[in-house]
Nucleic acid binder design. Sequence first.
DNA 1: GGTCAACCGGAGGGATGCCTCATATTATTC
DNA 2: GAATAATATGAGGCATCCCTCCGGTTGACC
Lengths: 220, 220
Amino acid sequence: MSQADIEQVRLPRRRDAQERRDKLIAAAQREFAVRGVDASLEKIARDAGVAIGTLYRHFPTRLDLLLAAFEPRLQEFLDGAKKALERDDPWEGFVCYLENLFGMQAGDRGFNDFLSRRFPGHANTERIHDQMCRQIQDVLTRAQNAGVARPDITQGDIVNLIWSNGRIIDATRAAAPNAWRRYLYLMLDAYRAERAHPIPEPPMTDEQLYDAMVQLNERE
Amino acid sequence: MSQADIEQVRLPRRRDAQERRDKLIAAAQREFAVRGVDASLEKIARDAGVAIGTLYRHFPTRLDLLLAAFEPRLQEFLDGAKKALERDDPWEGFVCYLENLFGMQAGDRGFNDFLSRRFPGHANTERIHDQMCRQIQDVLTRAQNAGVARPDITQGDIVNLIWSNGRIIDATRAAAPNAWRRYLYLMLDAYRAERAHPIPEPPMTDEQLYDAMVQLNERE
DNA sequence: GGTCAACCGGAGGGATGCCTCATATTATTC
DNA sequence: GAATAATATGAGGCATCCCTCCGGTTGACC
């Protein structure tokens, strides 16, 4: 597939088509942000002022629309998050990374959903998730090597943290929009190396983590 | 309303009616446990081998069925949880209470849902929730007074813990059914007095908590 | 065993969502 | 200003769920 072919796919030829596509993406971003990734496609089409058939013409599957709506923002997030790694203080880097991540979850329910789910076999989403896992691993390992984060935790534990934060955000978005920040700082005390207590249960394996995220996606 | 009236309501006169009612409750317990409190009522009726109209005859609203299915188990849980308060060691009592609670969440998705939601204006459910809040407050205050739990946390923080555990359980139930226990022990390190660092965000107020739980219930 | 109130079944109306396809429209090209 | 290929439309089929209502059934009581 040549570059030209790709351009062919990405940019519809006709101007009106491009306009409708843009409107659809904008509506999708709004709707996903409020209702999560399971938002009604028919409502998105209505909001965009476009017929449902047109939505399906541009985005044959929900995932196509999801990616079009989120990919730029996700990539931007991934790039921005690198800054956490550039902090001098490894603990600050760890905190900064999580704070940024949690904040994005709080601001966009779709983003929140997207983080918790994996879409097996879809190269683009897998790439994004893998990239994020690597960031988490980096930021965690660095803090562990510096002796500030406890050594007995893994990337999977951070994913758990992301899940739980997602739930807290879902619950508190309306009533206490900043509650997640309190939760984060509370949780940070669980991750400090000083005076850590042993944990009886082993961490989740990578396969378990992966399965769990696929599961979250499949269960209505 | 006399005791006789209550009996009248609770025990339908005809034997076949009582049998169907029992079958419905049994099916509801199974279905709520697997699918959560939003399980399809039509499927529950089908599973019970009963027509949908019969379900509605016995349980005019979803909440009626929910209560019939969960109330005994909930009451049993509340009674059992008192044991945590009888422990000599306040910290052990705290841990024991949470472990028992989390374990019940893990075993029943409906129970898990039910814990996180409030149903305004329904005396029975409010009573159960209030009773639980009091238990949490007791177990926490005791551990705080003994100096083993950090003093800057509130009942609302424990509710947050319940929410997050609920999410982790939903995610890991199939792939790693014991992951919640690891999470619990990790979180415990955040609640120990000896490890506490200041938290920048104030705790949620009681109203915020209440609103959040109602919200969770109202959002599809 | 007959009567009757209590009970049951399940069709059906209404809502929502997914997705397709035949038809109508329109931007672009010549 | 045609011709045409790309595009848009939205009705409609299918599925799921909620809930109601009325005709038919049956247990309980005399």
